[in-house]
């Protein structure tokens, strides 16, 4: 555990809680991609199956349970509780174009050809692209609520902090996991355009809207 990893995890947790609170307080999931949230629920489910087989630490187990619980709570709010406010027409990204290639890649390129390990690899690859339906939705509607941009910023920050964590672990522990690193870098790159808009618009008090 190092400071980058801890702040990365906390940033991830903040993102998840910001999204839940936004939906709960406004009683609306307008502008939120239900498809991205389903993908994140799949990501956590397939990655954290080791909760049942391997104990790493109390911190590790607690965070996993919280992440999974929040992911399903978010999906429940979008598709059940506040379904009437879900903007399905704008959430038109074809997720099969992500899930199918990612599944194929996980079978082909992994650390170990075992059931659990292929699911872990699948979750790593899927997480790297799971935000695409959300970014697609924003590009389609041309705008995002400020609270949604805070959510996205925390989520992107978490990935960036994990990269610093891997640099740290490489130098001080000799540890590196190429699959996680490549997928993590890809994921962080996807946020770059958004980071630029966040810094130039949202932090200056403007709403995030894209030029037509």
């Amino acid at each position: 555990m190092n400071i980058f990893r801890l702040t990365g995890d906390l940033s991830h947790l903040a993102a998840i809680i910001i999204l839940l609170l936004k939906i709960w307080k406004s009683r609306s999931c307008a502008g939120i991609s239900g498809k991205s949230q389903i993908l994140f629920a799949i990501v956590f489910t397939t990655r954290y199956l080791d909760l049942l087989s391997t104990f790493i630490s109390l911190y590790n187990s607690c965070m996993k349970v919280i992440y999974i619980g929040c992911a399903y709570a978010t999906v429940y709010m979008i598709y059940m509780k506040f379904r009437a406010t879900y903007d399905g027409n704008h959430d038109s990204f074809r997720v099969e174009f992500l899930v199918v290639p990612v599944g194929g890649l996980a079978v082909l390129i992994n650390h170990d050809f075992s059931f659990m390990e292929i699911l872990w690899t699948f979750s790593i690859y899927l997480e790297s692209v799971a935000i695409l339906p959300q970014l697609f939705m924003i590009s389609k509607t041309g705008e995002a609520e400020t609270i949604t941009t805070h959510y996205l910023f925390c989520l992107g920050l978490y990935r960036a902090l994990y990269i610093f964590n891997w640099v740290w672990r490489f130098y001080f522990e000799g540890f590196f996991d190429l699959i996680a690193i490549v997928a993590g870098v890809v994921q962080t790159i996807l946020y770059c355009d958004f980071f630029y808009l966040y810094v130039t618009k949202v932090l200056k008090g403007k709403k995030l809207s894209l030029p037509a």
Binding site: D50, K64, D112
Partner: peptide, 10 residues
């Protein structure tokens, strides 16, 4: 050879 030891990150 790659010795696989599991994953400790979230």
């Amino acid at each position: 050879a790659m010795s696989f030891e599991g994953h400790d990150e979230l």
